[in-house]
């Protein structure tokens, strides 16, 4: 009885129900797109995108006022998409290495955001929310936005699954198969940007990167095919979201941090499990055939 009460007690509060729904949706979404981020080694880009949203939010605050959270979302979305396309453009056209370009754009944008915010009176409170998120403050409108954009992102991934697969695996192969690699690369960047902005409310800028890469990497260690990696990552992310929120509810830990810590725990366990499994598999194969090991 105690366990059931322990589980259902938080559900009396509508804000907790909304927070649970939001974190399950966001974590799942992040893991699917995060699979591409991990496989293309774009972790830095994901982090940069999250941070470069700040000036958009600051501009929104200055122009449309503090109370209007909905317009802030659109400001953030516009900024993220512009930055992702800008980084892609610099990477393709310039002599500068892509990670350097990302670093410059990201730091510059973040500084611009802080500069703009510092002109707003009492910005500190807003900044805390933007940096760390506030999943407990998710509104019904936020849920509609997360659900709508989430569905659009998943459909895009399903429709262009094989193109994204080839572009991520081997850009040279994509070119010889005459796939429009540049187009799909940019589309993927836009998807990352949208996921980042949609997810900001739950974990904030500071922990956004963890949601993108931690469950996806855990799934990478446990699975052997991309669709399984995405599915496993989504489940792990969703479970992290729920467990993290319960920890947050009962122990008073900041919700975003709790979610990320649970996801990190899963990662550490999978690291140990997969290490042990690989050793076992290698021993089994050596026993079954001396031939294949000789080749390796």
């Amino acid at each position: 009885m105690f366990v059931i009460h322990w589980l259902t007690a938080p559900l009396q509060y509508p804000f907790m129900v909304r927070a649970l729904v939001a974190s399950v949706l966001v974590s799942g979404l992040c893991a699917v797109i995060g699979a591409y981020v991990v496989l293309r080694s774009m972790a830095f880009l994901g982090d940069a995108l999250a941070h470069s949203v700040l000036p958009g939010i600051a501009a929104g605050l200055l122009i449309s006022g503090r109370g209007d959270r909905r317009s802030l979302f659109w400001w953030a979305l516009g900024t993220a998409i512009a930055v992702s396309l800008g980084i892609g453009w610099i990477g393709e056209r310039s002599k500068i290495r892509e990670d350097t370009a990302i670093g410059i754009v990201f730091a510059g944008m973040f500084a611009l955001g802080v500069a703009l915010l510092s002109t707003v009176r009492g910005f500190a409170v807003d900044l805390v929310h933007i940096l760390f998120g506030n999943v407990l403050g998710v509104s019904s409108w936020d849920l509609v936005v997360i659900g709508g954009f989430g569905a659009a992102i998943l459909l895009t991934v399903i429709f262009f699954y094989k193109e994204f697969l080839v572009v991520t695996f081997d850009p040279t192969l994509a070119a010889t198969l005459r796939i429009r690699a540049a187009f799909y690369r940019r589309l993927l960047l836009v998807l990352v940007a949208v996921v980042v902005v949609v997810s900001l409310q739950t974990v904030g800028l500071g922990l956004m990167l963890a949601m993108l890469i931690t469950p996806a990497t855990t799934a990478f260690l446990l699975t052997r095919r991309l669709p399984w990696m995405m599915g496993t990552g989504a489940i792990l992310g969703a479970v992290s979201g729920v467990v993290g929120l319960y920890l947050s509810f009962y122990w008073g830990i900041a919700s975003g941090a709790a979610i990320v810590l649970v996801a990190t725990g899963f990662f550490l366990v999978s690291l140990l499990v997969s290490r042990r499994r690989d050793v076992l598999r290698w021993r089994l194969r050596r026993r079954s055939s001396g031939q294949s090991v000789a080749e390796e």
């Binding site: 094989k162 198969l177 399984w228």
Partner: peptide, 18 residues
């Protein structure tokens, strides 16, 4: 990138994608 999570079957199927 040989760590990429695809099977031999998936990798050969990529030849059909074009």
């Amino acid at each position: 990138d040989w760590r990429f999570p695809v099977t031999a079957f998936d990798a050969v199927m990529m030849g059909r994608i074009g």
